[in-house]
Amino acid sequence: MDCSEFHEPMIDVLYGEADADTSRKVEQHLSECSACREELAALHAVKRHLAAWKTPRFSRRPFRRPFEIPASLWRLAAAAALLLATGGALGLSGIEVAYDKGPWTVRLGRSEPVANIGSPSAPAPSAKSASFDSGTIEELRAALRAETALQEDALLNRFEQMIRDSETRQMRARGVHLADLKSAIDRQRRYDMARVTAGLSYLDGKTGADMARTTELMGYMLQASQRREP
């Protein structure tokens, strides 16, 4: 007999997923084939052993939902990037647009810088700042320094005051806290003492009662033993 055709049905039976027809067929076969009977029993045993494999206990971890950029924002970003790229490219290409003399002209490619158009003998730009009186500048500088110093002093004073205030507050809070703690500890101590005393007296009473009972029992035993003796 070819047993291999019963391998799949036997798995169905093993896991309780066999329909009535399959069950009947397998049962029929098992009644005739000791090898398959043995096989199915062994597979049941394997299944039992498989149950011994335990996994460690895993802790739950919060799910970090991925941050997702909405599609509209992507489109915006793409448009911005395109604009930037175009601007950059045009800038690099050295574009020159002229429209003040007649029609528009656009020229690509770097042009030689045009130096000193018109009058080569024009005065240097630094000459302009020289028109300030050097004395005025010195005055302004001194005023600025004085003001800064004044502001720094005021600021320093304020900081010091703030620190002092904060320290005072902290000291006061600490005092209050300490007093609280002390009274709490005191209360706890009194309560514990009371419990210990109560426990001791209970134990005392119990021991007393036990002693009395033991004495009584010993009395009985004594009496009984004496009575038995002839």
Binding site: V13, L30, A41, H44, A45, R48, H49
Partner: peptide, 13 residues
């Protein structure tokens, strides 16, 4: 040598 893997009487199906 795991005990019990050896054949046992046929289970009821």
């Amino acid at each position: 040598g795991v005990r019990g893997a050896a054949p046992v009487p046929a289970p009821t199906i």
